[in-house]
């Protein structure tokens, strides 16, 4: 009958199984709505998006200072930088690299500032599969605890031009 005009008295309150289903569905929607604030306070993985405005040139300068102060080595021409445990770190995204390589201590928590000096990029830490958006003009601070040791790869997962698939970075946790 959906193709035709309904009968005059179509306005009826839901009844029976249909009413029950609406109730159950609404309840489920509430459960899902409450899960997010619950996890915000009790869970360990969140996207609080602590953000500061930053000019790309200023972010570049802060990153260079951070590299100069904390440099511990070099891999394939890219500096390896070890921030102080509990301290600040900088990760610069640009076409097509992540700069620098970060060296973290297992179990320590770091505030990692991420921004871009050109296009938008996607921070995708693999194989953990932790993903955040990186946008020029925005200093996005991710507070991260390096819970497991090993070598982790940063893949760019926001399209950023022809070299996008080769924009690979590294985080080393010891």
């Amino acid at each position: 009958m959906s193709l035709h005009v309904p009968e005059r008295d179509w306005y009826k309150a839901p009844a029976g199984a249909e009413k029950l289903w609406i109730g159950v569905a609404l309840l489920w929607c509430f459960v899902m709505s409450l899960m997010m604030p619950y996890w915000h306070f009790r869970g360990k993985q969140n996207a609080d998006s602590e953000t500061y405005a930053v000019e790309p040139a200023a972010f570049m300068e802060r990153t260079e200072r951070f590299v100069a102060d904390n440099r511990v080595g070099e891999i394939d021409g890219v500096p390896v930088v070890e921030p102080p445990p509990g301290g600040e770190a900088y990760l610069l995204a640009r076409m097509w690299s992540w700069y620098p390589i970060l060296k973290l201590r297992q179990g320590e928590t770091y505030r990692i500032h991420m921004s871009s000096t050109d296009l938008q990029h996607g921070f995708s830490l693999q194989p953990l599969n932790i993903n955040y958006q990186v946008i020029p003009g925005y200093d996005h601070v991710i507070t991260m605890t390096a819970a497991t040791a090993g070598e982790f790869i940063i893949v760019c997962n926001e399209f950023c031009g022809i070299g996008h698939d080769r924009m690979i970075g590294k985080i080393i946790v010891e």
Partner: peptide, 27 residues
């Protein structure tokens, strides 16, 4: 997972309004 919009904004815009639309689809 963007910068610039806070957790309250994200949760509100995702759940309150969004889940009533989900309710519609479930109906």
């Amino acid at each position: 997972v963007d910068p610039g919009v806070g957790p309250a904004w994200k949760m509100w815009n995702t759940s309150y309004a969004m889940y009533l639309a989900v309710l519609a689809s479930m109906i």
